[in-house]
Amino acid sequence: MKMKNGKYLLALILILLFNVNYCFAETQIYDFYKQVNLVVGENIATVNQKVVTMDQAAYLNGGRTMVPFRFLGESLGAKVSWDASTKQAKLSLSGVDVTVTVGSLNGLVDGKIVKMDVPAVNKGGRLFIPLRFVSENLGAIVNYYDETNEISIRYSDTSNWKTYEASNNMTYKYPATWSIGPTKDDQYTISVKSPNGSELITSYDDRKPKDLISEFKDLFSVDGWKLETTLLDDESNIDNGYELVFSMQEKNGSYSYIHVFVDVLGTGSNIGICKTTEETDEMDCLIFYQIMAS
């Protein structure tokens, strides 16, 4: 994401520390946001916190994760179709079409051939497709955690969002039922409010993600949160995004965790702050918001 002066721009979500508990009280995951979690070798997955049982588990093939075609498409909200005569599976989502053919390395993205590392296959009576190739070409973000074989797929559908043009030469897309506008004291600080009353404050920084980690550490350490884990999207380059996991022991002895996601895309940045607890093992998100700016 860049401004007209060419500087790298990252939209940073700031939370007023005294208001953290209030903000996390909102547990609704909005229709435009999909969060899919699964583990290679297990047929139990979650889609927006709801447990889903797959007919067959995801597995590795040539270093790539293969998942059931219909499960992935329907979990992301895509329209799925299968042509038995051509052995082609097609997923359509927000105006993007991705087609794979059983046994072929030639995938189609909006009709254009894109090479895949592994082909779609039939296994145990089910069609399996390469997860990362299909998901990312549909506009989703995929994170794979080697130590646990866990995979998360996150997708935001912005196709029906409104557009807001700010005085700082930035253009934003935001949910039609939400409100957005600059704060009174700073034109570079934008307030985004959901229908349920929570407020998201975004500000701007020309530093790269690696220079912002200390900001996140300071933000949560003030309230006693301890940094437990730093997970990089690309181990060779922290500026490609990361996840920070903070922990805190509650009065009843259990632990709560805050997850800070920073995902860098070609057209913008996804930044989200979510909370989990040991008691419920559910993730409540203080709005995982896709910033679309130019």
Rank of each mutant, 00 (worst) to 15 (best):
G95M: 13
I153A: 10
E165S: 14
D146G: 02
M116G: 03
I153V: 15
A166C: 05
P119M: 00
V121S: 03
K87H: 04
A57F: 05
I153D: 11
N143S: 15
L76N: 07
T46V: 02
A140P: 03
K87R: 08
V121N: 12
W82C: 00
K123A: 15
G95H: 15
K173A: 10
E42R: 09
L108P: 04
T163N: 10
A176L: 08
K115E: 09
T183Y: 03
F69C: 10
D83K: 12
Y174F: 15
Y145N: 12
P175R: 06
N168G: 02
F128Y: 03
T158P: 04
I113P: 03
L93H: 10
I44H: 13
E42S: 12
K162C: 06
T46L: 02
A45K: 03
A140L: 05
I141Y: 11
D157L: 02
S94M: 11
L91H: 02
S85Q: 12
I44S: 15
V40Y: 03
V80R: 05
T53V: 10
F71V: 04
G41T: 04
W178L: 08
Y145I: 15
S104W: 01
W178K: 12
T65N: 05
D110V: 06
T163R: 10
I129P: 09
S81V: 02
Y155Q: 11
I153G: 12
T86D: 07
N149F: 06
Q49E: 15
G63P: 07
R126E: 11
E42N: 10
N169L: 06
G77W: 04
W82Y: 12
E136S: 08
Y164I: 05
V118T: 11
A89E: 02
V67S: 07
R126V: 14
G111R: 06
Q88A: 15
Q56F: 01
T148E: 14
T171Q: 11
T101R: 13
F128N: 01
S167I: 03
K79Q: 14
G62H: 11
I129S: 07
S92M: 13
Y59V: 13
E147H: 11
G111F: 02
Y172S: 07
T46M: 01
L127N: 13
S104L: 01
R70L: 06
Y144S: 01
V47E: 04
S75F: 01
P119R: 00
V40F: 05
S94E: 07
G95C: 13
A166H: 10
A176W: 00
V102P: 02
S159D: 07
S94Y: 02
G103A: 13
D117E: 13
